[in-house]
């Protein structure tokens, strides 16, 4: 009995794998990183045009770049893991307060490292990237610290650095990594279509984990010790917005992964619908409500809807893709 169902599972899985890499790369990954590169360039241009923290055009450009990152932030393999690119773009969560410390250090000493792109790339990653930019634009203390001129130079340096990193990321995907995933070979990073499918499946689960445990879990804290200041991008009021964006991006990925099995796709789709509806109905942009019982309850409900998606992913999508069900392999130690 066991043998037959294993065979059926293997056959279904290989059907599920066919063309998966091409579709996900061409419809989701490459356009996603291209958008990140484009929005990075726009951010750079906006900072050159108007570097003031209160500049509407700069803040809008920042928002678009953070949106673009959020949409691909679960693809943490390959190009993002080379030369710390992912962390240089997005040093988050910053549980030790390293970002404000790094920025304050630069501002206090008016460190000339901010004068050129080459020198700025040597700054600690805590002082680089989108979350550092958020401090520069929105943090009450840092957005007004130091001289106006230095603040401007630093803002422009951070923006230029984001642009360069984002473009390098996109280029690495196009020139190297997409090919490794399209054409798995013996002795390669990916040895089969199944391994490529597994990588994308892991990315889906990573994204769901980041959203449930980090974006929602960290500000929730515990009932006795909620931590609203741990919400992602709370200074720019984007905490809930990022949760919704990540869910939308993860849904696109999940639907591609589940394409071969309408029943599984249906289950995933309905759980995503529930989670997104919950997010849309929650009027708490920075999860400040975690500090009081009724507000907290709503955020907990949202977290639960994301965990319901994870359950379907692990319970139905994983087996469908033939991803090893071994509980040593999937969860790690």
């Amino acid at each position: 009995m066991l043998r037959i169902s294993t065979l059926v599972l293997a056959m279904t899985a290989s059907v599920a794998h066919a063309d998966l890499a091409d579709t996900i790369l061409d419809d989701i990954v490459l356009p996603g990183f291209d958008q990140l590169a484009t929005s990075g360039q726009a951010l750079d241009a906006a900072a050159q045009a108007d570097c003031r923290a209160e500049s509407e055009s700069l803040r809008t450009a920042f928002g678009e770049a953070l949106d673009a990152w959020t949409a691909v932030s679960h693809f943490r393999f390959g190009p993002t893991e080379v030369e710390n690119r992912g962390f240089a773009l997005a040093f988050w969560p910053d549980s030790r307060g390293k970002t404000p410390r790094a920025l304050n250090g630069l501002i206090a000493s008016q460190d000339p490292v901010a004068q050129t792109a080459e020198s700025f790339a040597t700054v600690s990653i805590a002082g680089r990237g989108l979350y550092a930019m958020e401090f520069l634009l929105y943090d009450a203390a840092i957005s007004t610290a130091g001289s106006v001129e230095y603040h401007c130079a630093l803002t422009q340096a951070v923006a230029a650095d984001i642009s360069v990193t984002a473009q390098e990321l996109a280029a690495d995907w196009h020139r190297r990594y997409a090919e490794l995933m399209r054409n798995p070979i013996d002795g390669g990073v990916y040895q089969s279509e199944a391994e490529v499918a597994q990588e994308f499946f892991k990315a889906l689960n990573t994204g769901l984990q980041i959203t449930a445990d980090m974006r929602l879990g960290r500000p929730l804290g515990t009932y006795d010790a909620p931590r609203p200041k741990r919400a992602e991008a709370w200074r720019s009021g984007r905490s809930l917005h990022n949760v919704a964006l990540s869910l939308e991006a993860l849904e696109r990925l999940a639907m591609q992964l589940a394409k071969a099995e309408p029943e599984v796709a249906g289950q995933l789709g309905s759980r995503f619908d529930i989670a997104l509806a919950e997010a849309k109905g929650l009027h708490d942009p920075r999860f400040a409500g975690v500090s009081d019982p009724s507000g907290r309850f709503r955020v907990e409900v949202l977290q639960r809807t994301v965990n319901d998606i994870r359950a379907v992913s692990m319970g139905a999508l994983g087996p469908m893709l033939g991803v090893s069900g071994g509980f040593n392999s999937l969860d790690g130690d």
Binding site: N84, F87, F91, P93, S95, R96, I125, A126, Q209, I210, D213, M214, G217, R218, L220, G221, T222, R227, R230
Partner: peptide
């Protein structure tokens, strides 16, 4: 509070 998420990789 954040489960098994890794907080300090950089």
């Amino acid at each position: 509070d954040s489960g098994r998420v890794k907080l300090n990789l950089p």
